[in-house]
Amino acid sequence: MSSTELPSVPAVTVTPKVSTVRVASGEKLRSVGLPGVTLNLRSRPPARPGLPPALYVHGLGGSSQNWSALMPLLDGLVDSEALDLPGFGDSPPPDDGDYSLTGHARVVIRYLDSAGRGPVHLFGNSMGGAVATRVAAVRPDLVRTLTLVSPALPEIRAQRTAWPTALLAVPGVAALFTRYTRGWSAEQRVRGVTALCYGDPSSVTPEGFRNAVEEMERRLALPYFWDAMARSARGIVNAYTLGGQHGLWRQAERVLAPTLLVYGGRDQLVSYRMAQRAARAFRESRLLTLPDAGHVAMMEHPETVATAFRELLADTGELAEAGATGARS
């Protein structure tokens, strides 16, 4: 993939969002229309004018809500905005049905170009980490820093606990799984996801669990839910097979932005052993390992991730720049 494959496209509509999607205190939702795709965006009012922008990209099966615990902790550092990738959260499917990693990266770049928000502090989790890596590699002008939480980069030997997710990429498996699990309640599904993604599932509060169940019920009612999951999983698997300049590890080596890597010791989807390889691949990187965290450290340990991000800004001079920008505004 080259930068010429990811064209700049102006936004055509921006409207307030009225939805049943849960909105945390201080958050706002809005829709942005781009040619062929409509994106739901979750944002927080900046603590002061002039703060540098940040964009957060969720993982497979996730949504912009996955960043709601971290974003308020960064209110004084960045102007936060999280998107729902097409087919996830409250964003409808893309018109062209493209759920590949390249397709998702293209959407992120189109949004940043149309909004004029770049360069941003770019965050990505899991699949969103792979998407963010690709964006940073092909459009370095759009990325100030890169923060990757359990990025879905290729592994030669994936953990057995990650196989069911990969199997969703096989044609027909999603439909088979849907039939097999037809009798499962939303509560049962959330318990399964929590056990898979959290290092300590008991850390989820009763309120957080209830909210997750409500969101699961809403999304299961969407006619495209499983299609978006299966096609995006297929996109990850296909990206893993690419070699040469299009390979994700090769693109990681091309990233110029200072990079914070966050890995959890109890991650059942992205192996903890990949942390050192990632630290070597990204040329200007720092590594935060959390032995007790699972796949979603920004939800389990948001304060720790926020502290590490602040240190990244301080060490790269971005923290002083953000303060100076705010003072001038």
Rank of each mutant, 00 (worst) to 15 (best):
T15L: 14
P302M: 00
G199F: 05
V32W: 09
T147R: 10
T145S: 13
M229T: 05
Y180L: 11
A239K: 02
A252Q: 05
R134Y: 02
D200W: 00
P53I: 01
A278D: 11
R210N: 09
M299P: 01
A69E: 12
A308T: 13
R144I: 04
A297D: 02
K17L: 13
L261G: 05
L287F: 02
R283K: 12
S19T: 15
G199M: 05
A115Q: 12
L70Y: 02
Q188D: 13
S2I: 12
I236Y: 00
S2Q: 11
R210A: 15
D113Y: 15
P86R: 08
W226D: 04
D98S: 12
G129Y: 01
S232A: 07
V131T: 15
A47V: 09
A166L: 14
V173L: 02
G129C: 02
E215R: 15
Q268I: 10
G192F: 08
G183C: 00
A228P: 09
A228W: 00
V173A: 00
M127A: 14
A297H: 00
A306N: 07
S329E: 09
F225C: 11
Y56F: 15
A281R: 11
L60S: 04
L196D: 05
F225D: 09
L122K: 05
D79T: 04
P206C: 03
I236D: 02
D315A: 14
T161I: 10
L122Y: 06
N66T: 11
V32R: 03
V21D: 13
